[in-house]
Simulated scan of single mutants.
Amino acid sequence: MSTIIPPHLYLWIFCEDCILYIFSLVVLLLAAYYFSKLPRKPHPLRLYGYSYHNGPHEWPRHFPASAGCKQSPINVDSARAVRLDSRASCRPLLWRNRECLPNAYTMLNDGRKVALIGTWAAPNMVPEVTGGPLGSAVYRLVGMHFRWGANDEWGGEHTLDNRSFPLELQMLLIRQDFATPKDALASKEGNSMTMVSYFFKIAARDNPYLDAVVLNLGRIRRPGAKHCLPPFPLDWLAPPFSSRFFAYVGSLSEPPCAEVVIWILRFTPQLHISSRQLHQFRILLSADGPITRNSRPVQLLWGRKVFLYK
């Protein structure tokens, strides 16, 4: 004989299920709210960048050194620069091993810029520089990277008499007593690194010396992508010079913005790049989308001197 369940008992069971469902939903919503308020560690590629949410105005939150008084880049006021005759007051810049070809270059999209890192067959074949503002210290090449902007009017980080340049090539060198850039940063010494910058202007025709880089940018479109380039002379991208440059003490122009850099700026003569070639840099991607710009605004000098080596 089957048992007849009273209608009010069905209602009670239904109400119990509804209460359990609502309770579970409330618990899930509360948990979601709680976890949304927990501090999150940003993805390394998003920790800093050049967008609104992680651009230079946000860097001091994560990188206190970026609020220091010896920050880079700067505007160079040529009329106020301290003029030095490199032949009379100090040694001119002296380059070594520039004729030594690397085994290869690795071109990298690190999510913010294009970097070129060479590997040489032996340590005594790596390009070096000394003299000028570097004194007797010798600095060894680590790599090069490019800075550009959203249009052909600006993009380089440093400016000369408030004039912008569409592209800046920065060579990073570390003092030879350091094994790696990380060691140089850890030293916190104001001259543990040097940056040598070259500046470009727009030309009607392509610059064939940039082809090795520009024609392969499509291979590193996504952040983290790498591509191996065959060896080519360093002079193709960065011609040697010994005088006619500006120098000052500053910092890395991107986080951690450590104030450990002697900057050497070669504003003239400018190198050439076509508008078509420059556009190829802007198709590269970061974690936030196309890298249309990767330059930090100029920083205050705070009493620092800029020197012109004639």
Rank of each mutant, 00 (worst) to 15 (best):
A88L: 15
P166F: 01
N54L: 00
D85G: 08
N103K: 15
G149V: 06
R96T: 14
L278S: 06
L172C: 14
G55W: 00
W59M: 00
E259Q: 13
M125H: 14
R222P: 07
P44I: 08
L9I: 13
V129N: 09
P39C: 02
M1Q: 13
N109L: 07
R40K: 15
S2L: 10
R40M: 14
A32Y: 10
P92W: 03
P92E: 07
L84E: 13
Y139S: 06
N216M: 07
F199Q: 00
P7K: 08
L215E: 15
I273W: 07
V129W: 05
G149Y: 10
D183E: 10
I19F: 06
E58D: 09
I5N: 01
A212S: 13
W236N: 14
A32V: 08
R276W: 09
F199I: 06
L169S: 04
G155K: 03
A81C: 01
F178W: 03
P269G: 04
D183P: 02
H43I: 09
T268M: 12
H279L: 08
L173D: 11
L308C: 11
R96A: 15
V298K: 05
L167P: 06
P223I: 01
A287V: 08
F241E: 08
T119H: 14
V126H: 03
L265W: 04
A67T: 07
K182N: 12
R276L: 09
D110P: 04
C18Y: 10
H62N: 13
Y33L: 14
L301H: 09
P239N: 02
A121K: 12
I5V: 10
N54R: 01
A67V: 04
C100F: 14
D77Q: 05
L28Q: 12
R80S: 15
S187N: 03
A212C: 11
G135Y: 06
G303L: 05
L28E: 12
C228V: 15
G135T: 05
D177L: 05
L300Q: 15
P102E: 12
L94T: 15
